[in-house]
């Protein structure tokens, strides 16, 4: 296993949505270069966990540190931290009023104050890497879901992040487009990107993950290498979950 020093550390994290305990004393450490896949039934808190790491969801209790620093509260320091953590959403969330290339260069130019020409050059290289360089001047609504999601990955990569968070990146895609997005993610994993991936794609978990985290009812139930987890789940909840999704 490739576990460097810890980059993302959650310690005793709790979060409630009203009476609902969505994160129940979650502790987790993600090493540099590690790929952690988070799976679990819907409502288990896995998306909330992912979104808590860049504080899109504030937590009620516990600590989250990124690269040795505790997550700052609102304001400039938080914006700076977020610029170092790429995030890919289920519904892509490309800026609807900007072209694909503008989506990718916006962060580098506005946040990092890079020269537009340099940002443009790197943006085009990134779009080429995810296979949609020929769509650079189109608007998000003109692209297929798979293309939009690959553009969203390029947008996150343009910030040269230290880690990438994926919140169910293929759940909103037509089945024939899932592969093209997973290919991009697999190549990122192979290049040593630190990744936290919330997904239902068990194939991706098997071949690209270093560890699989299984969550249920806001608790982190299992944490094991994929081969071990899929062959020998220890908890009843995980056995039940796997039997439901793997028999089809």
């Amino acid at each position: 296993m490739t576990t460097g020093d810890p980059l993302i550390v959650l310690d005793g994290v709790n979060k409630w949505f009203g009476p609902l305990h969505v994160l129940d004393d979650v502790s987790l450490s993600v090493g540099r270069g590690e790929v952690v896949v988070v799976i679990g039934p819907s409502g288990s808190g896995k998306s909330t966990l992912c979104r808590a790491i860049n504080r899109l969801e504030p937590i009620n209790d516990g600590t989250i540190t990124f690269d040795g620093q505790p997550l700052p509260a609102e304001g400039k320091p938080l914006a700076k931290l977020r610029s170092e953590v790429g995030m890919v959403f289920q519904s892509f969330n490309l800026f609807a009023h900007k072209s694909i290339l503008e989506n990718v260069t916006l962060g580098p130019v506005k946040v990092r104050k890079e020269k537009p020409a340099a940002a443009r050059e790197r943006g085009l290289a990134l779009l080429d890497r995810v296979g949609i360089a020929n769509q650079a001047d189109k608007y998000p609504a003109q692209l297929s879901g798979g293309q939009q999601q690959r553009a969203a990955i390029a947008r996150a990569l343009a910030m040269q992040p230290k880690a990438m968070l994926f919140d169910e990146p293929t759940s909103a895609l037509d089945p024939e487009m899932v592969g093209e997005v997973l290919d991009v993610m697999t190549s990122l994993a192979r290049d040593g990107m630190t990744m936290v991936v919330v997904t239902h794609e068990m194939g991706f978990a098997r071949h690209a993950a270093n560890r699989v985290i299984f969550m249920a009812d806001g608790k982190l139930v299992e944490d094991a290498p994929p081969a071990e987890f899929f062959a020998n789940p220890r908890s009843e909840r995980a056995k039940d979950f796997l039997s439901k999704i793997l028999t089809h």
Binding site: N54, L56, E74, G75, K76, A79, K80, L81, R82, S83, E84, V85, G86, M87, F89, S91, N93, L94, F95, A96, L106, G107, K110, V111, A152, R155, A156, M159
Partner: peptide
């Protein structure tokens, strides 16, 4: 999601 994506790349409020 538009504002979330904007905040996620590090834009201020």
């Amino acid at each position: 999601g538009q504002a979330e994506a904007a905040r996620a790349i590090g834009l201020t409020f």
